[in-house]
Write a protein that binds this DNA or RNA. Structure first.
Lengths: 174, 174
DNA sequence: TTGAAATGACTGACTGGTTGGTCATAATAA
DNA sequence: TTATTATGACCAACCAGTCAGTCATTTCAA
């Protein structure tokens, strides 16, 4: 899969020929199926969209108490990231600069996710003592915790120099 | 500065000639001062090292109570990120693949920072009721919150579609 | 059944353009 | 004049994308 190569070497540093070879076809054949190299990137990001999974996570929130809900969300998100580590790496690397279209995808994932989570948390949180609490920020903080712990742990190799048991991670965050 | 161009277009997509032009010199002159394009990246990352600032933040922790300490850390880190937005973007993009040497820098920043913060938190936290609490993870979660909220807010343009007052951010996280 | 003709998926050599890095030459300073 | 610093034309390597041609398979006429 192209994702594997991109995660290792980066999009720009991976020639179309390498992708084709990996797929067992010739470079020319590649261009029978894809308009361009960029088109493949867009296609890959689209097919691997996190939206359905994220929405599923959010729907799950509806059926549980706040404690369990957040706990479950963290676990689910963590598993999710683990299962898509290459996608996460590539998306993170290429989105900021390479692709205006892919950037639109961020808007489609990030905005609805945040909105849904925030409103959900807000509706639950009224029952709590909390004083000054901003759901909009809290949501990003929660997701931020998960993503960056994942990054330092799995991507930057901190897992080797600062090992921590996986279960400890999810249970501590939540 | 090269950082500006890299933050906009990406390292690979920025020709040496563009960097030279930006600096008001010819391409040949560039190679009088730098071994290679990669050498410049390494040099830039080194000169902009976050280590001193991070260490200063940590030292500040020593003189305050836990509440204020964390609060201060968050504010400091946030300001820090804001002042180095280009560096953050570039480092995030180039570190995972482009540069083994730069990756060593991660180890030099990430590991000591985490260790210092964790041990600090751990020493303070004993006075608290906390049951199952893992400082090692808590630290990464804290930093993760700050960094990803920053990213969604400042880099991915979520600030436009989901605007939040800056002060609200730091006060809510802490 | 058989052999010729048509098809189209596939190939990889090739092209045009780009860019990292070099070097002979020029400008400038001492 | 001599030494130092700067220049930009040039080179070689690389790569996205093209296209003329190959060949296994299918179609169909005899």
């Amino acid at each position: 899969m192209a994702l594997k190569l991109w995660a290792e070497r980066g999009f720009d540093q991976t020639p179309v020929e390498a992708i084709a070879r990996e797929a067992g076809i010739a470079k020319g054949t590649f261009y029978l199926y894809f308009e361009s190299k960029d088109a493949l990137l867009i296609e890959v990001l689209r097919r691997n969209s996190l939206v359905p999974n994220v929405l599923a996570l959010i729907r799950a929130l509806e059926t549980e108490g706040l404690e369990d809900a957040v706990h479950g969300f963290v676990r689910g998100a963590w598993r999710h990231l683990s299962e898509h580590r290459e996608l996460v790496l590539v998306a993170l690397r290429e989105m900021p600069t390479n692709l205006e279209k892919a950037r639109g995808a961020v808007e489609r994932v990030l905005v609805p996710t945040n909105a849904a989570l925030a409103s959900h948390l807000a509706s639950r949180i009224e029952a709590r003592p909390a004083g000054q609490f901003s759901p909009a920020i809290a949501v990003r903080a929660l997701i931020g915790m998960i993503v960056l712990v994942f990054l330092t742990q799995e991507v930057l190799g901190a897992g080797r120099s600062m090992p921590v048991a996986e279960d400890e991670i999810t249970s501590t965050i939540a």
